[in-house]
Every structure is written in C-alpha cells, then in structure tokens.
C-alpha cells in the first residue's frame, strides 16, 4: 500500500512531507547502512578509503537570478553536500534535461557559470548526460549533479555525534537565496538588492575543520535552518535551542520576508552551513570561519540541550520562547 495518494508539491518543500516521502518510499525500498543516516552525502568505503557520495537535482525558475543561476547552484549544492561531510570534492557529474526550444546562448551562460563555480571549488565536471524532451514536457532546463569526494582518515562528521552543550554556528546571513529567487520569479520589485548566496563552501569548511571540535555540519538549503535543526535533533536525540536575536539575517531580506509572510528560518539558502561544535572549540571555529570570505558574518546562534523529547526551541527576541517545527507544507504568500 502506498503511504500517500498522490505526490503533492509539499513533498518537495524540504520540510516534513519531504522527509516522510524519503523515509516511507525511498528509504524503505533502498534501505542500506550508507543511506540510512539520510545526511547530505552518504559515506561509502572503497578499497580502504572512505568516500562521500551525493546527488541532487535542480529545478529553479527563473534560471538566472541576482547572485547566481541554476548552474552555479547545481555545482555549489553538490560541492557543499560533500564538504559538510568533511570530504574533499574529487569529481562531479552533470546531467541535463533540456526542453525543446531552450535558447543556446542561455545554456552556454549556464555551463560557463558551472565551470566558474567548479573552478572556484577546485573540482572538475568529469562526466555527464543530456536528454531533450518535447516542448511543454519540462520547464526549460533541469540539471542533476552528483559528486564524489574523499573523507580524510580519522575525520568523521555526523549528526548522530552531536551532544548536549554543543554550540550551533551558522556561516552567515540566512534567507538571501530564497528571497532573491522569489523576487526575480514573481517580479516583486522589492528593493534592497538581495542576492542569492550560492557559493561553494569547501574552502570555508576546510578552514573551519583545521580547528578541532566540529562534530557535524549541515548544508542549510530547502526547509531552512529550522528544518536542519529538527533533523539534527532527531538524529542525535537531543534538543536544540536557537536565539532569535543571534540569527543573522540582512535587513533587506528580513523586511522582504515580513512583507511576504515568510519566516527566514524556513527560507532556502545555497551557500550557508550550520556547524555543531564542542563548546570549548566554538570560539576558535567561529574565528576561523569569520576569517574566510564566505564566513565573514558567521555567528553563534544557539546550543544543543538535554530535553525529554528531542525538539527545537526558539528563544524569541522579546524574551519569550516557542517550539520551532519542521516546515509544514509549502511556504505560501498570504492574503493580508
């Protein structure tokens, strides 16, 4: 018996329904020890070395937006999924599904952008695939990338290792990507110059990992920080506490979210990570992150706590507190 009647859009939101789809369909069908932790990349052992392996498909409208494009996101997303597992990206693949009529010049801009992002990450796109479908059967362009990377000996980063007292650090301002794409897609005309944060973070991550004490890292993409914290909390069995006042969000993104009725804690990023670090190491790690271009606005935003039920609590700006759930359904703009 299928666990649900039909696929709905919220199954792709990155929130609770996405999680349910993955667990009740994919995990059930494919179950194996590498897949089971459901982290950003799987760990596999090959000939005595540990590899990280990941794949991701990219669908975004419009394909170009301030700060990036579908190609940049496709490369950065996969690089980051490898890097947060502590892996050094070794090679990427790129598969393209193109709709009949897609402009050649735009495709060339996208591939050039992919090349630039890959160069920045120090990785090559070594294999690929192309399919063309009839007009109307796809939305311009879909890109799938997969990546493989080497996890150095002795390095093991996993959400299950996170402990109470661990400090949560985010690498910079949240919500920029989601706001920039929405603004471009729906021509909202919001001012303030919010740009996508799409960036390869393997450099930043290597710099942070030079300071010992990091237990886990997560790529904060769809579903936002709130979803990442819920996933980590579920994986390690402890609670998380987030301080609203400490969460970095640019004023422009903040007011855009306020206007649209979106919560920055649930909005997607493409160049931000959450780091879970032993308390005594946190300040050193923060300093190392801030010394890197993509981590200048890194901030300590909360801590892991012992709680009866593993869940995420938000200490609000005015001194109140509330539970922070996984994203429910899709984020929809509101009436008034």
């Amino acid at each position: 018996m299928a666990p649900f009647n039909k696929v709905v859009l919220a199954h792709g939101s990155g929130g609770r329904l996405s999680r349910e789809l993955v667990e009740s369909v994919f995990l059930k069908s494919f179950s194996n020890p590498s897949l089971r932790p459901l982290e950003d990349a799987a760990e596999i052992k090959v000939g005595g070395v540990t590899l990280a392996f990941t794949t991701d498909s990219y669908v975004v409208t419009p394909v170009e937006f301030p700060g990036g494009d579908i190609g940049r996101v496709a490369v950065c997303g996969t690089v980051n999924d490898l890097a947060v597992k502590g892996a050094r990206p070794a090679a990427l693949s790129a598969g393209f599904i193109l709709e009949e009529g897609f402009p050649g010049a735009l495709l060339c801009r996208i591939t050039a952008s992919m090349r630039r992002a890959a160069d920045e990450a120090g990785v090559s796109i070594v294999t690929g695939d192309t399919k063309v479908v009839e007009k109307g059967k796809a939305d311009g362009i879909f890109i799938n990338t997969a990546g493989v990377g080497l996890i150095p000996k002795g390095r093991r980063l996993t959400s299950a290792a996170v402990r109470p007292g661990d400090i949560i650090i985010v690498s910079g301002n949240l919500a920029d990507h989601g706001v920039a794409v929405m603004n471009a897609r729906d021509r909202l005309g919001l001012e303030g110059g919010v740009r996508s944060d799409a960036a390869p973070l393997n450099g930043l991550i290597e710099a942070a990992l030079r300071v010992p004490g990091i237990r886990a890292m997560r790529d904060i993409t769809r579903g936002g920080l709130a979803t990442v914290l819920n996933e980590v909390s579920g994986a390690c069995g402890f609670g998380a506490e987030l301080d609203e006042n400490s969460v970095p969000v640019s004023p422009a993104a903040k007011s855009a979210c306020a206007l649209l009725g979106l919560d920055p804690l649930y909005v997607a990023n493409e160049g931000k990570i959450a780091v879970f670090a032993a308390p005594e190491a946190a300040l050193g790690i923060l300093k190392a992150m801030r010394a890197h271009g993509y981590g200048r606005k890194a901030a300590i935003v909360g801590r892991m706590v012992k709680e009866k039920i593993p869940r995420v609590r938000l200490n609000t700006a005015i001194g109140g507190s509330r539970i922070l759930l996984m994203l429910e359904g899709e984020q929809l703009p509101r009436i008034c």
């Binding site: 919001l190 422009a252 007011s255 855009a256 005015i318 001194g319």
Partner: peptide
C-alpha cells in the same frame, strides 16, 4: 523596503522594552 523598515525597526522587538 525602506518603508517596511520604518514600521518594523528592531526597537519594536527590543527585549528591555518588552520586559
């Protein structure tokens, strides 16, 4: 955005004022 800022300056979420 500037107009939005005017209506929601951080002071309206200030912990000291709230307490």
């Amino acid at each position: 955005n500037a107009a939005a800022e005017r209506f929601s300056s951080p002071l309206w979420r200030d912990r000291g004022l709230a307490s």
